[in-house]
Design a protein around this nucleic acid. Structure first.
Lengths: 137, 137
DNA sequence: TGTACTGTAATACTAAGTGTTACAGATTGA
DNA sequence: TCAATCTGTAACACTTAGTATTACAGTACA
């Protein structure tokens, strides 16, 4: 799994603690320890899906656009990492009964796995994450 | 997720259809469409964990060592891919409340996710996979 | 009009995954 | 005993995905 998912969570959590003002990609990138351009790419995705708003120019930045408890981790997973579970099988041998059918079988199993993961991730809202950030252990 | 997991499943399924004789890494690699050395590496792992037996020399190869219905996909996942869900977060900023705590929060969430995935994978035994290979769609 | 932002393309760098070669060790059969 | 056929594994090369960096256009504000 690439880290866009965790960067998105990190960014949104950061914004969640600054609901009253805009935050710059520089500030968020410093908190997350990655390059500002990377953060802007991830935030650009989040914006396209309506989770945040942005404003260019002096005093601009990013700000949360939804209710904290109505955004969950599955929402974020879907736009940053959907299909990440699916391992890429090389083209196997059609002349062999295993090779010819394995891909179809595995794809279905991994689709199921991702759905299953979704059920788990849906239980975590951004509000939960903020609470966990403050809770010791 | 790397493809060791699916290669292991592929190999074991192949062996499951040849329970009465040994199969060579060459034969399996041809079915799976990857290099024989790669297959041997994966099979080496499976052997170390007692899923298969091997024999060197002429007429040698690999053979299943367990009951088909007592090996499930979670067993295989654990030895090939455990921790694969865990995205690597870059070291974030300890001076920021989000940076300082995010890693701990995410690690716990992903541990839970992997456990959850385990519950799903446990429901598929190798016997199920063999049945699915033969079942249309 | 200068400064501080976002938005994004292009490119370079790095790490993980995969393929390949090489060769030692085991086993078999002639 | 010798050649052939396997596994076992290390070493290295290649490829691709992930990430960082540079560059610059566009927007907003003072």
């Amino acid at each position: 799994m690439n880290s866009d998912f965790t960067l998105a969570i990190h960014s949104l959590t950061y914004l969640a603690l600054q609901l009253d003002r805009m935050s710059t990609s520089d500030a968020i990138s410093e908190s997350a320890g990655v390059h500002p351009v990377r953060i802007r790419k991830v935030l650009s995705l989040l914006k396209k899906h309506g989770f945040i708003k942005s404003k260019e120019g002096t005093g601009g930045g990013f700000i949360f656009a939804r209710d904290l408890s109505e955004v969950n981790l599955w929402d974020i997973y879907k736009i940053t990492s959907e299909g990440a579970l699916q391992p890429k099988c090389p083209d196997s041998n059609e002349a062999c009964v295993v090779g010819a059918n394995m891909q179809r079988v595995l794809i279905n199993i991994f689709l199921g796995a991702e759905e299953h993961l979704g059920e788990y991730l849906k239980h975590y809202t951004l509000k939960d994450i903020v609470d966990l950030i403050y809770k010791e252990n």
